[in-house]
């Protein structure tokens, strides 16, 4: 369960001050697929950082599964992050490791051990079993994103956060990735928060939250 109460975020520089989020209040029930849409600068990435427990420099309150991590110790935040799977626009695979090892690393960090069967299942699920020993540089954009999705689902996270997962892909590959994420959401029963500026992609979610100038402009179930 995600709960945001009057969350605000202001970026301050020497000569500027930009309000990225302004009094966001939002509840996302467990297992929901939510798209955050909006134009550039609307505050969707800022919101995603807060949801993903990587940015704590904000006003208001944020609860994840009933706990708030504002001012929490590093170990507590790290423990909470283990339940979150991230899919980034530019994949962020570790280039010096094979795909198998990228997933293995996630397993070690999240679960403290390596379950070979689980890693194999994740690779099978993203249809990359034959690329397990390949390095990220040897894969196409779509394959890289599938590998990133595979890594994100290791340990069956309760919250999956996808930041413009199709932003670097062509239309056909983007469709494949979206199909994969949708299926995984159903199979894993996890909460999926997707950030996109593409309305067509956003509409594949159960719920669409549109941000404008740091505020929720529209929030509807699809």
């Amino acid at each position: 369960m995600i709960r945001l109460a009057d969350v605000g975020k202001v970026y301050r520089g020497r000569n500027f001050e930009v309000t990225a989020l302004d009094g966001i209040s939002l509840d996302i029930p467990p297992g929901q697929f939510v798209s955050l849409v909006g134009k550039s600068g609307s505050g969707k990435s800022s919101l995603l950082k807060i949801l993903g427990l990587v940015d704590f420099d904000h006003s208001g309150r944020y609860w994840l599964d009933g706990s708030t991590y504002h001012g929490a110790r590093d170990t507590e935040v790290a423990r909470a992050r283990k339940c979150i799977g991230y899919v980034f626009q530019d994949f962020r695979l570790i280039g010096r490791h094979t795909i198998w090892k990228n997933l293995q690393m996630a397993a070690v960090i999240r679960e403290g051990h390596v379950d070979v069967e689980e890693i194999r299942a994740c690779l099978d699920r993203v249809d990359l079993a034959d690329k397990a020993l390949s390095y990220p540089d040897e894969l196409s954009g779509g394959q890289k994103q599938r590998a990133a999705v595979g890594r994100a689902i290791v340990g069956r996270p309760r919250l999956l956060i996808a930041d413009e997962p199709t932003g670097s892909l062509d239309q056909a590959t983007a469709t494949q990735i979206m199909s994969l994420l949708t299926d995984l959401h159903t199979e894993l029963g996890c909460t999926l928060v997707l950030v996109t500026h593409d309305m067509d992609i956003a509409m594949q979610a159960e719920r669409v939250v549109e941000l404008r100038q740091g505020r929720i402009h529209d929030d509807f179930l699809h």
Binding site: D74, A78, R81, K82, Y86, R92, I109, R110
Partner: peptide, 16 residues
Amino acid sequence: VDEIAVLKSMGMTRVQ
């Protein structure tokens, strides 16, 4: 830097 950021996003602590 990015690799470490990814590891931390997955739950690795500062000490680790």
